[in-house]
Design a protein around this nucleic acid. Sequence first.
DNA 1: TGCGGCTGACGTCAGCCCAA
DNA 2: TTGGGCTGACGTCAGCCGCA
Lengths: 84, 84, 70, 70
Amino acid sequence: MANPRKFSEKIALHTHRQAEETARFEQIMKEVSDATARVQPERNAKYVLGVNSNENLGSFQGGSLPNVSAGGPTIKTSHNADMP
Amino acid sequence: MANPRKFSEKIALHTHRQAEETARFEQIMKEVSDATARVQPERNAKYVLGVNSNENLGSFQGGSLPNVSAGGPTIKTSHNADMP
Amino acid sequence: NLGGGGNEDQARKREMRLLKNREAARECRRKKKEYIKCLENRVAVLENQNKALIDELKSLKELYCQQKGD
Amino acid sequence: NLGGGGNEDQARKREMRLLKNREAARECRRKKKEYIKCLENRVAVLENQNKALIDELKSLKELYCQQKGD
DNA sequence: TGCGGCTGACGTCAGCCCAA
DNA sequence: TTGGGCTGACGTCAGCCGCA
């Protein structure tokens, strides 16, 4: 149950967990952003509207999508974090 | 370079990254704990001294150590988190 | 038809089993490879989320200490 | 000794190659299995760190809002 | 309970890539 | 440049476990 035997079940389990964790992650990030928006109006001004969600894909980007970064496991959640 | 071919190099790379991330993780947790220690003296009182580091093992617990949890990948960082 | 026919049927059944297992092995290797990529991608995602959370926690801590100093 | 001796030497060399590659394949499979366990363990560790960071961020956010309300 | 689907482990072939 | 170390992929055997 906790450790399935079939690979498809393992993939489905990890995909499900990752979806839940990403949801909680984006939720807490939005909450903190809203809480600190008044004292820092210039901080997320140009980043918070860039979360159109096309970079932190939920699954493993396997099969289709040969683009996006074209270099193996290098995804980047891109919540205004690590931006040169 | 970024994606080695040998499995041993991949393992060494992931072990190194995990060590660095764990160091930064424990550092920021300690900083926040110290910053909020005055207004919350009872919060970490019984947990902060429990970081003797024997549970969040850095490597993959593979090979030796058939104990600790004896059930595959179920490690738990145990920084007063998820404690029933 | 108990001698040669039975042997021929057994041979056909064995060949069918080998063929089935052959294709199953191919699909199994493909799924395993996909599972490994899934794990690697999951590690990368969690890595970036950890970095972002640590940065946000650091910023909020600085804000908290700054406001606590008043 | 160009005929049978050469064939025997080739046969020995081939056998040596097969033996070497056999042991190498065993070690490679072992390392691959170890790598998968490494990834799974890394995912579990990052998972718990993410949970702890989110909890800490949530607590600090509540503290910040509470102190900001004054 | 037995059968069939998946997977673990093995040996072999082919190919990549780096140090002689 | 090339021989040898590792790894990817294949087919086969053995074994587990869910399902008819």
